[in-house]
Amino acid sequence: MNRIQQKIQEDKKLLSIYFTAGYPNLNDTVTIIEDLEKNGVDLIEIGLPFSDPLADGPTIQDSSTKALKNGMTTETLFNQLKDIRKTVNIPLIIMGYFNPMLQYGVEAFCKKCAEIGIDGLIIPDLPVDVYHEEYKAIFDTYGLINVFLITPQTSDDRIRFIDSISNGFIYMVSSASVTGSQSGFGDEQKAYFKRIADMQLKNPQIVGFGINNNDTFAQATSYAQGAIIGSAFIKHLTEKGTNQIEKFVKTIR
């Protein structure tokens, strides 16, 4: 069983953290992963930086630009991660835009992920239907879980379809926005969380976008099995560097 599938069977609220590989410094990747695991984080999303991150707000855009300037590439990331399974057991997901994967070769990319011990991928601009028709067989061959997004505007039918082809969790985008653009949840979002919870999907949901502290984490996980923090963690790394990760995690739960 894939590490993501094992993790979601645990009876706990999951904290997932996103960071951009190569930020703040090119070679921080392994240290950040080890520290996040040590401090009790449940899942890690490793951002493969892209020049044109359409779905991201300024914080993650800036970290991506910096990471690319630092010299991060797909090959560099794979090299940094080649021995990662000797030191950590936490589920690892690579999150990135489709074009760098397309250039690496989707099959070669998936093969490399499997060799390293990556458990899943999140590719915001690879649509569900294209994945289903063209790439699902490759992901299955290499035992990779592909995580799909749903939003408050996603229809029930489409959510059911996404649920039917997911085999890990569903990434529930909390509101119509790019990353890092708001905080706190209003009635509209709570109604949306409840609507999804009531659908009794086979895959658990993990909420992302707009989670930045203890309060928003608690609210999100009162409806869903977990929550993802991205921009708030990047801001922490920008301000405090990589040696106070414990402090950050403790402010969340």
Binding site: F50, D52, E75, N99, P100, L102, Y104
Partner: peptide, 21 residues
């Protein structure tokens, strides 16, 4: 060469690593 920009697959100026130039 073939790549994805602004929602479509097309010919695209990019690095070997798939970053748009």
């Amino acid at each position: 060469k073939e790549g994805v920009i602004h929602g479509c697959k097309t010919l695209l100026m990019q690095t070997n690593d798939g970053q748009i130039t």
